[in-house]
Computed example of a mutant assay.
Amino acid sequence: MIKNILNDKPTKLFMVFACFFVANALIAECIGGKLFSLEKLFGLPVHTFTLFGESGLAYTLTAGVLLWPLEFVMTDIVNEYFGPKAVRRISYIAVALISYAFIMFFVAMKVPADSWWRGSKAEGGIPDMQTAFSGIFGQGMWIILGSLTAFLVSQIVDVTVFHRIKRHTGEKHVWLRATGSTIVSQLVDSFIVLYIAFKLGNNWSYQRVLAICMVNYSYKFVVAIALTPLIYWLEHRIERYLGHATAAKMKAAAMGKEHPYEEPVTND
């Protein structure tokens, strides 16, 4: 049984995508506590601006945005070849495992720290390792709730928009359904996480939530456009790996046009 599964190319492809999808989401959540300056990253001077009446804004972003665009690329690829049920399944798995990770982070923070370990990095500028550990992994509950809710809702939005566009365009205009669905879902993701984490959790004003949302979204919008060639490259590689006939059957099945594909098992 296991040999048949591992010899099936579509199954192997799905396993790779699912593993990368879950791992990428988990890593993005773990590194999301760090903020960085986009201007400084590119060696540019930092300029502040005003939006929706909120002054002093700049392109200060969470490190998680470095990985989240890839998550939506994977969503579109899985959606294209395996359909919305597969996207929802790996999204639920990702949320479950991220939740499990945060529970384990909480347990790790609460277990008694060794006295030698707490001061082991004092010479390196970290006087208390326990405080540093808790500061990195101890994200607030509102942030965790906002992030997980935004992730799940934005995935559902991405799937819905993707398939509505594809029903009207067919196999043409890959860029439209992939980039279009990502642009819409990223806006939903940006607003929900800020609304739950900082409007509900910290009583920010709507103006501030919207201003920071648009700053973050403008970055995600540009990245979504920039990653469009990656969608085409991945589809090209998948077509070569699966073969045109199998890929076509999978795409049709993903749209619910026919029964799921059947491919003979090979020993290659």
Rank of each mutant, 00 (worst) to 15 (best):
I5E: 04
D8G: 02
L13E: 03
F21P: 01
N24E: 14
A25H: 05
L38Y: 03
P45M: 00
P45L: 03
V46C: 02
T48Y: 06
T50H: 00
L51P: 01
F52T: 05
G53N: 01
A58Y: 01
Y59T: 03
P69Y: 05
E80A: 14
K85Q: 13
S91H: 05
Y92N: 15
A94P: 06
A96H: 09
S99H: 11
S99I: 14
F102E: 13
F102I: 11
I103T: 11
I103R: 09
F106G: 12
M109G: 11
K110M: 15
A113Q: 09
S115V: 12
S115R: 12
S115N: 14
W117I: 10
G119Y: 08
K121L: 15
G124N: 09
G125T: 03
I136E: 11
F137R: 04
F137Y: 06
G140V: 01
I144T: 02
I144L: 10
F151H: 06
F151K: 04
I156W: 03
D158S: 09
I165H: 01
I165S: 05
R167M: 11
R167G: 11
V174H: 05
L176K: 00
T182R: 01
I183M: 09
Q186A: 05
V193G: 04
V193S: 06
A197C: 08
F198V: 00
F198I: 01
K199A: 13
Q207D: 12
Q207V: 07
L210G: 02
C213E: 12
M214I: 13
S218G: 13
Y219R: 07
V222F: 11
A224G: 04
A226D: 05
H236Y: 14
Y241E: 11
Y241P: 06
G243E: 07
G243H: 07
T246P: 00
A247L: 09
A247G: 10
A253W: 06
M255V: 06
E258V: 09
E258D: 12
E263W: 01
E263D: 13
V265P: 12
N267T: 15
